[in-house]
Amino acid sequence: MPKLSQKKCQWNVQPATKEYSAQLPSHPNPRNLQYPPKQTPVEELYRRYKDPHEEMIMAEGMSRLCTDLDVDPQDIVMLVMSWHMKAATMCEFSKQEFFNGLKALKIDSIEKFRSALPSMRSELKDKDKFKEVYNFTFDWAKEKGQKSLQLDTAIGMWQLLFAEMTPKWPYVDQWCEFLEERHKLAIPKDTWNQLLDFVRNVDPSLSNFDEERAWPCLVDDFVDYLKEKGLVQTT
């Protein structure tokens, strides 16, 4: 093996080792040779989308999965799916996440997978589930090792999520404009989580906005922004 890859990498040791270790997983360790003779359907699915170099499904596999499922990768249903899989990162499923997720969803074929999508989509109508998905989004969408969510990602996610919400939040566009115009910084988790409470509980005329309720500063600023620009809706 090493010889072969060294040839391919033209005797550069570093890429060669990388190549070598990348190929390892597909060649099971001799000690694990009692491989089940037949792969389970979930395994078969996993193999179909698995990244050739990593033991997980990555962006490219994900887009193939989307094609097979007949959904747009930007579709919010992919977010709900990731939530079911308890995925740690956007556009990725680890082997564990994929297996556990499909097991919990009782899916073992692409057909079943496809037919599960409408019910996943409708789960967002449930208030509590929506909140879970919403809170899940923050950690899922943020870059690993960072505490806050990049502003452009956050705005994208908000637009995606709030589009699904009923009743609609009338200030989605103003909120995004406000962030781009005034804030320009990453969004901390507390602000992310609190915003949903604000959206759900404070009515559009802001009549029940309680300043003592310890809203994040960003929300306070947004309220000031709405008032300053005369954008507050009267009922």
């Binding site: 505490k147 901390p188 988790k189 507390d190 602000t191 003592e212 309720r213 310890a214 500063c217």
Partner: peptide, 17 residues
Amino acid sequence: EDLITRDYLERDKENQK
């Protein structure tokens, strides 16, 4: 808020105040 982000404090699950 900064201390919340840095995990010195957290909001109570039931009462946001």
